[in-house]
Nucleic acid binder design. Structure first.
Length: 282
DNA sequence: ATGTCAACTTAGAGTTGA
């Protein structure tokens, strides 16, 4: 297959980020790019603009929230939107019960599957782009959903690894794997992204046969991929590593370079996440 | 703890989510 550049980037709206996305595609030249938080429905993705740069596109979106996509110039086959076993989101308990209007005991909303995963085969590698639920607070139903969602992902990935040794799962996991992956562990006391159950869910995913490909920072010692827009967090390098690149052993052993492109977080109209770039030679 | 951003409802500022 030769040398291939894979990347993952939470763009925080592909519409708002389109100029930056096109600029970055030309600059970095990834062969495969996993996108998250595209925030567009099925027909809202700027497919033509991206295709003009030589990329095939597979998008999975629902409108205002979430949304994932795969861009590839080395093949894009066997696209799967979502995955078997996704538990879906039913809302907080308080939202789940509707007022009885015609004598019924109350209606419960069934879980709605969100656009958080898409997978395809690109250049001989099975590639997953995932956007893990945020979790909001450890007390919320959204946090429970996050843990269930990660367990369902683990189960499905384990199934795929039985059929291929070339697989990557990358995207915005909304979990910092270790305390070294946040700027100040004390600042995250009581918050999501750092709790033991979330980290155990990542460990269980890795235990299916994946390895964490930790990218090199472009500047400073910390491999952060996300910095809050507020309070000058980026300029103080108060970030987190929550955008992860999990690779099967065969792919991980083929990694030649991996870095975080912090240049893409600078300047006018950036996403709050930076792209993670991984070069492999299979 | 929250100083920004994006989309949406709806016609300007408030809500939601991150």
């Amino acid at each position: 297959m030769g040398r291939v550049r894979l990347a993952t980037w939470n763009v925080n709206s592909v519409k708002a980020r389109l100029p930056r996305l096109l600029e970055w595609l030309e600059l970095a030249g990834p062969d495969v790019l996993c996108l998250q938080e595209t925030k567009v429905g099925a027909d809202g993705f700027p497919t033509e603009e991206v295709a003009a740069l030589g990329y095939a596109v597979a998008a999975h979106g629902e409108g205002r929230w979430n949304g994932v996509a795969l861009l590839s110039r080395v093949g894009l086959d066997d696209v799967v939107r979502g995955f078997e076993g996704d538990p879906g989101w039913a809302g907080e308990p308080a939202e789940r019960v509707r007022e009885p209007d015609d004598g019924e005991e109350g209606l419960f909303e069934t879980p709605r599957i969100e656009a958080r995963a898409i997978s395809a085969t690109c250049g001989g590698v099975r590639v997953w782009s995932v956007y893990v639920p945020n979790g909001r607070t450890p007390e919320s139903a959204h946090y429970t959903y996050k843990l269930h969602w990660l367990e369902a992902l683990r189960s499905r990935v384990a199934g795929e690894l039985a059929g291929t040794d070339r697989l990557v799962v990358c995207g915005d996991f909304n979990v910092a794997p270790t305390d070294a992956d946040v700027f100040n562990p004390a600042a995250f006391a009581g918050s999501t992204h750092v709790t033991a159950p979330e980290r155990e869910a990542l460990a269980a995913l890795l235990a299916t046969g994946l390895r964490d490909v930790v990218p090199a920072p472009m500047k400073g010692p910390n491999p952060f991929t996300y910095w809050d827009y507020r309070a000058g967090m980026f300029h103080q390098d108060k970030g987190m590593r929550i955008d992860l690149f999990y690779a099967s052993a065969a792919v991980a052993e083929a990694v030649k370079a991996a870095y975080i492109d912090r240049e893409a977080r600078k300047g006018k109209g950036p996403s709050d996440h930076a792209p993670v770039v991984v070069d492999i030679d299979l």
